[in-house]
Write a protein that binds this DNA or RNA. Structure first.
Length: 826
RNA sequence: GCGGGCGUGGUGGAACUGGUAGACACGCCGGCCUUAGGAGCCGGUGGGCGAAAGCCCUUGGGGGUUCGAGUCCCUCCGCCCGCACCA
């Protein structure tokens, strides 16, 4: 028999060529809009093409590909497309450094992603490939923007915005990290007053929150989104400054503490602060304070530990519940972006107000006391529940939770306030003063104002420029010929918007475009969307748990409201894969611990790399890369292929539908049973993303095949090996296609997913565990159909059980058929 | 501080609804084959006692529920992630 050697470098390109030539993974749209064979849309988050793919990409697409293959072989038509999130800062920064046009560096990177996806053998429908920087794509990004604009969901507003001094651009709240640093470059973010484009995502806060209930997403991702939306119930209460005749509403979650308010605080950014201080002795001090805090970084300001600072405004407001005059302050612990930018301060029942009152020697009035008999610590500030005291005859003695409703009701009746819900979520700031992004398709006309570019003129193409260096305005502003245009309404002179869109806009709808990627008349036809959407299984990293996933959900809801979609949620099920680390830390060039997929595949082939990355542990957890571990998987694939090749050679002609002998016995029966066990195990594990145990099950099967290779019929061995290859195909497609083809002459991806034979999952006897007082004392063979009585007898008769019972009384006998018998003795 | 997750051999991990803890793999030890092996094959491998049969211990610590707990409950310790002066 000739020596058989597993050679992935010969096997893998050979099968990749078949799949590419035959366009195996392409799937058409059903003109009827579905209704035929069941459909499945399996999608991994599209890559950001910068440099070469890294190991995280390999993991993400290995997970998605396994699911796509599994769904196909369950008989579904599977949409599994690919694209590139091609606009963005890294390409632009690269251009600033080297002068290379972002389009060129992006093209280079895309080409290397394409090459690698092919060499990894990912089953992609290449006919639907998109890239967000192509005019044929961003034309529709612009169209969506204008749809939102017409609906009032895109608007321009001057606002205190987060500005990155290094990248010279405005950032969305979500792009500023906890330390107040730019998510991309790490520079300390500043606040600037600028006119910017916003998308009205806050209109959707309630729906974005509520609809989380109905989708199959990991709990921690839902929790992160809930926290980000940050819903709080409370009341809006109006405090009036009589001297200036201005009403100041505040939001509070504790209207029950209104009678304990002893002062009033405004955020330094509050537009009225300077006006209020004007003409008072404190004017200068207020000015200085405001300037100082506005220049403070978020990092300094956000520190809750830092001592409270502030300045009196020299004015008072009236507490609407008791008419008291409360002194007004400006203090940086009050945030403009939450609530109304002003608060009523109740030092007795709020930690922060308490700290401020202590620093400024302000009165503290307790109005909630621990309920009589309660063990709560009554010391101030008391933030727990209790009963109202020293408030008002109508409310004193009430439980504070009940008092909230009563007081809000009273405020409402008096016209001094009303129940209110507040969200932490802010509107999405989408304009960027950068070059490499989708142009915002509007013009400014002196007479007509903001005028959308007519649909027929889309796309507004990104012009070529020479200088990408940021100067505080968009580099596009330098393209004067491009900026100057005519107004679509009056025909007069107009100027184009020179800001571009946040790249998260591009990626908020790409999954829709895949369904109808080559449509030149519209962003999509509703029929293919009806067929494919929503995405059945979305796969990506947790780092997108808030931004991308929230924005995409918002887009769907908004587009559904505008009549363009008939579903509310884009991703029915979400899977978040864990990171791949090396030596316990994140891979990075500076640490020199980067494992390059290209080098890996050069060495061991993509089947080994893919199967190892899924075998190393549960895919939703972080996994530490180990070359030794990978060698183990390589040995396994090698053994599988060799045994298949040898078996095929020994058997002569391949057999199309391998099956074991009709009535196997002895070792044949054992191996056939093991095979059906593996089918059952792998099928179940695939459904719950337990790829590591699925692969382990095929390893077990192969171990049995190797052990019994000379003791079973050739048909049995061929059946078991072909089944193993079939089961492993979603994880290591090339070697399995090859092994399956050697054994059967068939293409494994055209075969239905194997089904376990129920009869073969049960054996006629099993090892009955015999326990005494919960401890295993013996094991005996029991017949599968034995009655509980028989099992009890078997157990009592077991030698070591007898020794432990030792004549004592059996007070109880628990029988779990198929498993064990437990004797309780006294 | 709030919310979520986790803690199992030398290592990665398995045990899905409470029912044989440690599947599978790495590593290590021993053997076979070989001129040689960083190739391949076979066997062993949680700890302790014992010649063996077997017994005891063991899923971060402590307590509880149960015939039976890695799994459920309480409590403490440790680690990771998200949010955080959010009124």
């Amino acid at each position: 028999m000739a020596e058989q050697r597993y050679d992935p470098h010969e096997i893998e390109p050979r099968w990749q060529e078949v799949w590419a030539n035959e366009r195996t993974w392409e799937v058409g749209n059903d003109p009827e809009g579905g209704g035929g064979a069941p459909c499945s849309y399996v999608l991994e988050m599209l890559p950001y093409p910068s440099g070469e793919p890294h190991i995280g990409h390999l993991k993400c697409y290995s997970v998605g590909d396994a699911i796509a293959h599994f769904h196909r072989r369950l008989g579904r038509r599977v949409l599994h497309p690919m694209g590139y999130d091609a606009f963005g800062l890294p390409a632009e920064n690269h251009a600033i450094k080297t002068g290379e046009h972002p389009r060129d560096s992006t093209a280079t990177s895309i080409a290397s992603f394409q090459r690698q996806f092919h060499s990894w053998g990912i089953s992609i429908d290449w006919s639907r490939e998109i890239a967000t920087h192509e005019p044929s794509y961003y034309r529709w990004t612009q169209w969506i923007f204008l749809e939102l604009f017409r609906a009032g969901l895109a608007y321009r507003k001057e606002a205190a915005v987060k500005w990155c001094p290094h990248d010279q651009t405005v950032l969305a709240n979500e792009q500023v990290d906890a330390d107040g640093r730019c998510e991309r470059c790490g520079a300390l973010v500043e606040i600037r007053q600028l006119e910017q484009w916003f998308l009205r995502i806050t209109d959707y806060a309630e729906r974005l929150l509520g609809d989380l209930e109905g989708i199959d997403w990991p709990e921690h991702v839902k929790t992160m989104q809930r926290n980000w939306i940050g819903r709080s119930e409370g009341a809006e209460v109006t405090f009036r400054c009589e001297e200036l005749g201005i009403d100041y509403p505040v939001f509070t979650t504790r209207p029950d503490t209104l009678f304990g308010a002893t002062f009033f605080v405004m955020a330094p950014e509050h537009p009225d602060v300077l006006r209020l201080a004007e003409g008072t002795p404190n004017e200068m001090e207020v000015r200085q304070y405001v300037n100082r805090t506005l220049n403070e970084s978020n990092e300094e300001r956000g520190n809750a530990e830092k001592p409270k600072t502030g300045v009196p405004l020299g004015r008072t407001v009236t507490n609407p519940v008791n008419g008291e005059q409360l002194p007004m302050y400006v203090a940086d612990y009050v945030l403009m972006e939450y609530g109304t930018g002003a608060i009523m301060a109740v030092p007795a029942h709020d930690e922060r107000d308490f700290a401020f009152a202590a620093a400024f020697d302000l009165p503290v009035r307790s109005v909630i006391a621990p309920a009589p008999g309660s063990e709560a610590d009554p010391s101030l500030p008391f933030t727990g529940d209790g009963v109202l005291v020293d408030s008002h005859a109508d409310f004193d003695g009430m439980q504070n939770r009940a008092a909230i409703a009563a007081i809000v009701h009273w405020l409402d009746r008096e016209g001094k306030g009303h129940a209110s819900v507040n969200y932490r979520l802010r509107d999405w700031l989408v304009s960027r003063q950068r070059y490499w992004g989708c142009p915002i398709p509007v013009t400014y006309c002196e007479t007509c104002g903001i005028v959308p570019v007519p649909e027929a003129e889309l796309p507004v193409r990104l012009p070529d420029i020479d200088d990408y260096t940021p100067k505080g305005r968009s580099p596009l502003a330098a393209a004067e010929d491009w900026v100057r245009t005519t107004c679509a309404e009056c025909g007069g002179p107009a100027r184009r918007e020179t800001d571009t869109m946040d790249t998260f806009v591009d990626s908020s709808w790409y999954f829709l475009r895949y369904c109808d990627a080559s449509n030149h008349e519209a962003a999509w036809d509703p029929r293919p969307l009806r067929e494919w959407m929503p995405v059945d299984q979305y796969i990506g990293g947790v780092e997108h748990a808030i931004l991308h996933l929230m924005y995409a959900r918002f887009f769907c809801k908004a587009l559904a409201d505008l009549g363009h979609l008939d579903f509310q949620e884009p991703f029915s099920a979400l899977f978040t894969q864990g990171m791949v680390t090396k030596d316990g830390t994140k891979m990075s060039k500076s640490r020199g611990n980067v494992v390059s997929p290209a080098a890996l595949i050069e060495r061991v082939g993509s089947d080994t790399a893919r199967a190892y990355i899924l075998f190393v542990g549960p895919p939703d957890q972080d996994a530490d890369w180990s070359d030794e571990g990978m060698e183990g998987v390589h040995r396994f694939l090698s053994r599988l292929w060799r045994l298949a090749a040898e078996t095929a050679e020994r058997a002569g002609e391949p057999v199309p539908e391998p099956s074991a002998a009709a009535y196997p016995d002895g070792d044949d029966l054992a191996l056939v049973r093991k095979t059906h066990w593996a089918i059952e195990k792998v099928s179940g594990d695939l459904r719950r993303f337990a790829f590591n145990t699925a692969i382990a099950a095929v390893m077990e099967l192969l171990n049995d095949c190797s052990r019994l290779r000379d003791d079973v019929e050739l048909d049995t061995l061929r059946f078991s090996l072909a089944s193993g290859a079939s089961l492993l195909f979603p994880f290591a497609p090339h070697v399995c296609a090859d092994a399956y083809s050697l054994l059967t002459g068939q293409r494994v991806w055209e075969q239905p997913w194997p089904e376990a034979d129920e009869a073969m999952l049960e054996s006629d006897s099993y090892e009955l565990v015999c326990q005494v007082n919960g401890k295993v004392r013996d094991r005996v063979q029991a017949s599968a159909d034995a009655s509980s009585e028989t099992l009890g007898e078997l157990c009592r008769a077991a030698p070591n059980v007898k020794a432990h019972v030792n004549g004592r009384e059996i007070v109880k006998e628990i029988v779990v058929p198929g498993k064990l018998v437990n004797l309780v003795v006294r």
